[in-house]
């Protein structure tokens, strides 16, 4: 397994050899730093050296300085960053702008994220999913989102975006903007109260009564109250029993118990 981890790191180094930042970074040491800080890091795609990080375990402790220390050295390696509920703001933009492989950025609940912040990260060339729910981003960044080169989905619930801003985003083909007010699925057809129809009697029998409520209140075998789930059809009438054992006695000798049943 150590071999596997090493091969991952080698792949990382090879993929980033052309990046001047990458050459100066001890990837192994930086991954260790991230994990020591309880930031989850994984390589989700075996065919790509790019990485995913999730800071949810320590979100409230991560500010711009911490983010710089933890994430900036591997800026070119991030594909998916979850910085939700962290305290990052403008001080994290410099390294975020270097995340050229970033495809998904989750900034949910980051109150330090505003229009100016979004204007800069929206330019990332591969960013296709951007979560801005609970941030201070508003209509001031709509133009930047419309111009974002790869953006496909953006979440703006409880941000500063207004319905008018969201409507503008909806004009861009291929961009799905979720403001948290997606209309409910509509009931296109509603049935009236169902009516039951008993068209045919059971084969070989006279028509049954419309209901199958037992004719007796007390069990013909034990005399205990009837459990409506324990029944037998006897001489065209539904007989109820108190338990699952009494029907066996009844079946063995029905005549013995007929006297305990109501007369037809």
């Amino acid at each position: 397994m150590r071999l596997l981890a090493s091969s991952v790191l080698l792949a990382l180094c090879a993929a980033c050899a052309s990046n001047p930042d990458a050459r100066s970074v001890d990837v192994d040491a930086q991954l260790a730093t991230l994990r020591e800080a309880l930031v989850h890091v994984e390589r989700p795609d075996p065919d790509s050296p790019l990485l995913l990080a999730d800071a949810s375990a320590v979100a409230s402790a991560i500010d711009d300085a911490q983010a710089q220390r933890l994430f900036a050295p591997l800026a070119s390696r991030w594909r998916d960053l979850s910085l939700a509920r962290t305290r990052i703001g403008a001080g994290s933009l410099a390294w975020l702008e270097r995340c050229e492989g970033l495809e998904r950025l989750d900034l949910r609940g980051c109150v330090g994220v505003d229009d100016a912040f979004v204007a800069r990260v929206a330019r990332l060339p591969r960013l296709s999913e951007l979560v801005l729910a609970g941030t201070r981003a508003g209509d001031g960044c709509i133009d930047d989102l419309l111009a974002a080169p790869a953006l496909r989905r953006v979440w703006l619930w409880r941000s500063g975006a207004t319905p008018a801003g969201l409507a503008r985003l909806a004009t861009r083909p291929g961009l799905c903007a979720d403001g948290g007010a997606k209309p409910d699925s509509i009931a296109a057809e509603v049935e009236p109260k169902p009516e039951f129809v008993n068209l045919l009697p059971p084969p070989g029998e006279a028509p049954l009564p419309a209901t199958q409520v037992p004719i007796n209140v007390n069990c013909p075998v034990s005399g205990a109250p009837v459990d409506a789930r324990r029944t037998r059809l006897h001489a065209g009438r539904l007989v109820g029993f108190c338990c699952e054992n009494c029907p066996k006695d009844f079946d063995a000798d029905p005549k013995k118990y007929e006297g305990a049943l109501p007369k037809p």
């Binding site: 699925s185 009931a187 296109a188 057809e189 509603v190 049935e191 009236p192 169902p194 039951f196």
Partner: peptide, 11 residues
């Protein structure tokens, strides 16, 4: 049969 009415929802 079910005694509950059904509705057709858009999907």
């Amino acid at each position: 049969p079910s005694l509950f009415a059904f509705s057709r929802y858009q999907n």
